[in-house]
């Protein structure tokens, strides 16, 4: 029973990591940029929602502020791409990394200046309610996180596989040059990817802030999510989720069964192990090109 509860809370954390990793991989696949501000975009999305919802800020109803926050953060991602990232095309990848790291710092500073540095919780309807399932006591927040992640990834999957724009996004990420040849507006697709990635990050942020608390430094979770993305195989969307779940599930079990102080290291030991055994990640999609 105890391990089942550990599993559920691990899965819930893992979903958040997975969603951040998903945004990371979305951008990496379509534009080959590594967005190290993905965790900070998650944090910003959470704070925007919190700022709209919580009583001592705007005190809007939760179900009103969520769509507004998703919309705002989507626009934020879109604008980032057309103003900053687009200018970096043709530059080295390291330049883009530095740019996004700097962006992360700016977002962290801004969030701190606006909402303060104290940890805060989002006043969401799912926070602090327990559900009982045949002797198992689960937090509604944890169950909701898992359900929302399933629904969101399902929607993303359907969108990618069955819409014109989704197909164009896949095409752009698999072969950008050929996408140009097909007449796909590659630049607009890249901007939309950043938009989508902002929305996914915000969803992750809302879930995180509902089941715990956030502060401006929560953005550093992005590093864990990056590890998740690498474990799953950088460039694979299901892999990103799986990597997130792996790290998320390992954490509570390590905390329970491994000596304190060492338990924090376990997810990264797994990362090293995966990199040694399967350097391209668990679900890598790297294929050799036929000549």
């Amino acid at each position: 029973m105890e391990s089942l509860q550990l599993l559920v809370s691990g899965l819930a954390n893992g979903c958040v990591y997975g969603l951040i990793a998903l945004g990371f991989v979305l951008i990496y696949k379509a534009t080959e940029a590594l967005n190290f501000a993905q965790g900070d975009m998650m944090m910003l999305g959470a704070f925007v929602t919190l700022g709209l919802t919580n009583d001592h800020y705007w005190a809007l109803p939760f179900w009103v502020s969520v769509p507004i926050a998703l919309l705002l953060m989507g626009a934020f991602g879109y604008v980032l791409e057309i103003t900053l990232l687009r200018r970096m095309s043709g530059q080295s990848q390291i330049a883009v990394v530095v740019l996004t790291v700097a962006l992360g710092f700016i977002i962290r500073f801004l969030a701190g200046a606006i909402w303060g540095h104290e940890p805060q919780s989002l006043e969401s309807p799912i926070a602090g309610v327990n559900v009982r399932l045949s002797g198992l006591v689960l937090g509604l927040d944890e169950v909701a996180v898992i359900l929302v992640t399933i629904v969101l990834t399902g929607l993303l999957y359907l969108g990618f596989a069955h819409t014109r724009l989704g197909l164009a996004m896949q095409a752009t990420s698999q072969n950008q040059l050929a996408a140009y040849y097909m007449g796909i507006p590659v630049k607009r697709v890249s901007a939309l990817i950043w938009c989508l990635s902002g929305v996914v990050a915000t969803a992750a942020g809302i879930l995180l802030a509902s089941k715990g608390s956030i502060d401006p430094n929560s953005g550093f979770l992005g590093i864990k999510a990056f590890a998740a993305a690498v474990i799953g195989g950088l460039g694979s969307l299901p892999g990103a989720l799986l990597g997130g779940l792996v790290i998320g599930v390992i954490e509570p079990f390590a905390a329970r069964y491994v000596a304190a102080g060492f338990s924090q290291v376990v997810p990264y030991a797994v990362l090293l192990l995966v990199l040694i055994i399967r350097p391209s990640g668990i679900l890598s999609q790297v294929r050799d090109k036929k000549v």
């Binding site: 197909l167 164009a168 896949q170 095409a171 050929a178 996408a179 097909m182 007449g183 294929r287």
Partner: peptide
Amino acid sequence: GREIFPLLSVRDNLSLGAY
């Protein structure tokens, strides 16, 4: 060098031609 979309189905590759 063809430049097809390797991880999409043949049918999806063709639909993208009509994008």
